[in-house]
Simulated scan of single mutants.
Amino acid sequence: MDEMLNNYLVKHLPKKEDWVNEIESQAKVDHVPIMDPVGINFLMQLIRLNKPDNILEIGTAIGYSALRMNEANPDARITTIERDEIRYGQAVENVKNQQKENMIEIIHGDALEELTKLVDEKRKYNCIFIDAAKGQYKKFFELSLPLLKENGIVISDNVLFRGYVLEPNFEHKRYKKMVEKIKEYNEWLVNHPGFITTILPIGDGIAISYKK
């Protein structure tokens, strides 16, 4: 997104509470990637509009997006999965500090395994938010399908990955495979027969998939 336009949008976002600024500062100090201001506010607006009563998040990090989704809909019960032990501990602490333990359940484990357990438990969610290992997005989506209620939505973050998906011959050694995976995921997603998907150039790219 054009920097001037992004600055304009950020300037016109709703005022944040102090605890939000504190967690954002924590993420910056610890180099933890969280959603950018425009992206997280768009996600929150989706939550406000759809009012899902059960949300599944794949990729907790330090609990920032889970807490912001709770802020958007305090009545929603959120299940969130984090593999990294340090991030999991930080998320637990942040959720505890906001006294949201009764609304936000944090699971420590590999999402590829934990999603199967949730299916076995016959859990159901109106909204699934995918924001974890980019190379596993398709697997996360497929494993999540039995968990999604009819007319539910799946939101995938980072699907434009810094705009690299636009480059036809992207050769950056560190990100080449990841970009290829995201491109494949996007193509697969928009052609999925069970969903209607829109990809929006908000933040780092957000895909919204509506279950038919």
Rank of each mutant, 00 (worst) to 15 (best):
Phe42Thr: 10
Leu43Arg: 11
Met44Phe: 05
Gln45Glu: 12
Leu46Lys: 11
Leu46Gln: 15
Ile47Phe: 11
Ile47Asn: 13
Leu49His: 00
Asn50Glu: 15
Asn50Ala: 07
Pro52Arg: 11
Pro52Ala: 15
Asp53Arg: 13
Asn54Trp: 14
Asn54His: 10
Glu57Pro: 05
Glu57Cys: 10
Ile58Asn: 03
Gly59Met: 11
Thr60Gln: 06
Ala61Asn: 12
Ile62Lys: 04
Tyr64Trp: 12
Tyr64Pro: 04
Tyr64Phe: 14
Ser65Trp: 05
Ala66Ile: 04
Ala66Asp: 04
Leu67Pro: 07
Leu67Ser: 04
Arg68Thr: 13
Met69Asn: 01
Met69Phe: 13
Met69Gly: 11
Asn70Asp: 10
Ala72Ile: 09
Pro74Leu: 10
Pro74Ile: 00
Pro74Cys: 08
Asp75His: 14
Asp75Arg: 11
Arg77Trp: 06
Thr79Trp: 05
Thr80Arg: 09
Ile81Lys: 00
Ile81Arg: 04
Ile81Trp: 02
Ile81His: 00
Glu82Ile: 13
Glu82Pro: 12
Arg83Ile: 07
Arg83Phe: 15
Asp84Gly: 07
Asp84Pro: 04
Glu85Thr: 14
Arg87Gln: 12
Arg87Gly: 02
Gln90Trp: 11
Gln90Thr: 09
Val92Pro: 02
Val92Lys: 14
Glu93Tyr: 05
Asn94Asp: 08
Val95Met: 09
Val95Arg: 01
Gln98Tyr: 03
Gln99Pro: 01
Asn102Phe: 11
Asn102Gly: 05
Asn102Met: 01
Asn102Leu: 02
Ile104Ala: 14
Glu105Arg: 13
Glu105Ala: 10
Ile106Gln: 01
Ile107Met: 06
His108Met: 14
Gly109Ala: 10
Ala111Asp: 02
Ala111Val: 03
Leu112Pro: 10
Glu113Ile: 12
Glu113Lys: 15
Glu113Asn: 13
Glu114Met: 14
Glu114Asn: 09
Leu115Tyr: 04
Leu118Thr: 06
Leu118Glu: 01
Val119Glu: 07
Asp120Ala: 15
Glu121Ser: 15
Lys122Ser: 12
Arg123Asp: 02
Arg123Pro: 03
Tyr125Arg: 05
Asn126Cys: 09
Ile128Ala: 00
Phe129Glu: 03
Ile130Tyr: 00
Asp131Trp: 12
Ala132Asp: 12
Ala132Gln: 04
Ala133His: 10
Gln136Pro: 09
Tyr137Met: 14
Lys138Pro: 10
Lys139His: 12
Phe140Trp: 14
Phe140Thr: 03
Phe140Ile: 00
Leu143Arg: 04
Leu143Val: 01
Leu147Phe: 00
Leu147Asp: 04
Leu148His: 01
Leu148Ser: 08
Lys149Met: 07
Lys149Arg: 09
Glu150Pro: 09
Glu150Ala: 15
Asn151Val: 08
Asn151Lys: 15
Gly152Trp: 05
Gly152Pro: 05
Ile153Leu: 13
Ile153Lys: 10
Val154His: 06
Ile155Ala: 09
Asp157Pro: 02
Asn158Gly: 03
Val159Cys: 10
Val159Met: 03
Leu160Phe: 03
Leu160Arg: 05
Arg162Ile: 08
Gly163Asn: 12
Tyr164Asp: 12
Tyr164Trp: 07
Tyr164Pro: 02
Val165Met: 01
Val165Asn: 00
Glu167Ala: 11
Glu167Tyr: 06
